[in-house]
Write a protein that binds this DNA or RNA. Structure first.
Lengths: 216, 216, 216, 216
DNA sequence: TATGAATGAGAGTTCATTCAT
DNA sequence: TATGAATGAACTCTCATTCAT
């Protein structure tokens, strides 16, 4: 049996709100975002947002949660293969750069949340992995990293610095892109690199620097 | 002769507003920031903010400009020594990590501006270097980088990727810190690393990965 | 079918705002008018004014426009009958004095606009007649006046002075009323003439002076 | 002995404030006027206005009083000659049109006061003539008018209408000028009549219509 | 579900006025 | 006298949220 028309529309509305909210929050943050703009982008009445999500803050929280949730499955899957550090670096980089490049809202959202609500991060992270299992994700990485260090496969002994290097190069670098390009692209060459091109260059550069820089 | 009392106080007020504004904007962004909070933090009457800075937006712009201006002198100075890539990486990393670590507001401010007003970056960057000289900064780096590549001293042929790697690791990584720490620090070990310690570890790690990862 | 309740109420609110605004602006002008007072007089929430009229200035402009629009139809109608100068003077005077006397806000509004924004008058006047037709109103009067002059029916050769005499006596005189009355009414005779009485006396006096003074 | 420098400057300052205030109030009215603008126009510090005039409202009152005072001496003088109605009309018209034309601020000020504070008019008028003598001005005109009526020299039996006709044509008409000109001057003929020219045309027209229209 | 109207708590900003020097 | 800084009340306008239908 197919869904009734109303149900379809209903789902559609919620999704439209959600997507519009993601865009809005990823640019303006919680405080700066405007319900009015979200409702117009979603082509629905302002009141519907409260009907479906009860408050601006709640909508924001759900968007944040959803964004962070996009990142867990990738890690889990990669970890289950018991990868070598080379494989880990390669797969993680490819996977995450692609996600970030495909949805620029994601990294903006994450960065904003890290800047504006760092105190929420712990519970957000917990929420992300608690749904999958207690000893997954972070715990596994920690173990793997410790083993790699003990096996002398990698040079960075601190797992925090280790992961920070990966995350900075693969994810956060996208925030810095406009700045670096503004530095180097003169007015005449306004032929900015396409998203696709940039993504491939980025993957290559990150994998290269990470492998050569962190593997023993 | 010493400055008159009024002069001192006056400057003091402007400075207090400025510092309070930096803090406020670096957390909440332009839209989310509240003049009320800034005025309270600066211990002055709300109206004084408009007396000295005419509008919230103008105050924000001046704060952004000032933040970006903190970064130009360092680059310029380092470049004037015609450094080898090793020196460049070492000095730049040490210099900028220290700035960022000393004033967490700086990187938050920069990231917020990059996320929320990427279209302003070009003019901001221009403003920063135009006050010092036309062929300084970016142009010099580009030349140096090209020479290093031609002399086979470094492996990354694209200056954008080259600088993005440095900036991500040395600057943007600080945004990611709470996230990575949330991943790895369990509730029991709430003995977070001190700022000093973290800074030194970060410098070491970044210099290490950059040198090994990017030098030929 | 009658209008739905909402429609009626909605229109009612806009109208109430409009009337309250007319009163307020006609006394205090744009700068001196207070949204607070308008909202209280209209018995609505302050925010509704912005909901319907977006800004104080816009509300003011619409009120001005509406006031000036009250005057066009009368002229147009009178002109279409190809009147003699006697008829013109009589009908115009009766018509406009009655309008002004019935709504003292009108002439105050017009005078304020003429005093405070004389640079807007041209566009306002254009707006008034452009909705009706290009060669109506002023153009017709000019033609008529020229014919009357050539036929030696009136003595004032300049259409500007001709109309200024009519407008001053029939319209602007109402602004001067309190002054002249203050001059002549002593404290003991605070039995001020009623609006009705004054209006009739005014019509008589104006028609008399205009006919005798301007017809050849 | 000449005045000391300070005294001269002081008087100069008060005068500058006064002139600037007249201009400002005559355009914006009491509420709309800005102390800031007045102080800038007078090239003095804002606080000096309060030093000399204690409050905005007081300054306004003094400006109003001064404006109305400009008009009393003319009337008094003319009346002392026991004029015929012709003389009265001619002299009054010439005298007042010239005043108004030379200082457009005067009529704007008067009109604004009449529109915005009609309740003050009585006391203002009293103030104007009380300084000269109790039975002067209004009382004299009333007597003269009554005599002229009884001698069958003029047709308008009501002194209020009589004076209103004169005042409207000679004074208030200047407020209507921009409107009537906007009606008749097409875009092409932007050669507006000069102040001088207009004044002379106005005097001629007013005297003509008043004499023919009101004398028996 | 869906909508336009309504609300009230602030937000940024202005401004007359006062203060300190 | 003269000034720039400071103040607090008030103003326009915004916005999340709720109401009535």
């Amino acid at each position: 049996m197919t869904k009734s028309k109303t149900e379809i529309i209903e789902k559609d509305v919620q999704e439209r709100i959600f997507n519009a909210a993601l865009k809005e929050f990823s640019i303006y943050g919680l405080c700066g975002a405007r319900i009015e703009r979200i409702s117009k982008a979603a082509k629905i009445n302002k009141a519907m947002i409260f009907y479906y999500f009860s408050s601006k803050e709640n909508l924001y929280k759900m968007v944040v949660k959803s964004v962070f949730n996009q990142f867990a499955p990738g890690i889990i899957q990669h970890l289950s293969t018991d990868p070598s550090p080379e494989e880990f670096i390669e797969k993680m980089t490819r996977h995450y750069v692609r996600i970030i490049a495909s949805k620029p809202e994601f990294i903006r959202m994450i960065a904003l949340e890290l800047i504006q609500n760092p105190e929420n991060i712990t519970s957000t992270v917990k929420g992300v992995f608690s749904e999958i299992g207690n000893n997954t994700g972070p715990a596994q990485i920690k173990k793997l990293h410790a083993r790699w260090v003990s096996e002398n496969k990698i040079s960075e002994p601190d797992p925090v610095q280790f992961m920070l290097n990966i995350a900075s190069l693969a994810l956060l670098s996208f925030i810095g892109r406009p700045f670096i390009e503004a530095l180097f692209k003169s007015d005449t060459e306004n032929i900015t690199t396409s998203h696709e091109e940039f993504m491939e260059m980025r993957i290559k550069s990150v994998i290269n620097i990470l492998k050569r820089g962190m593997l023993s």
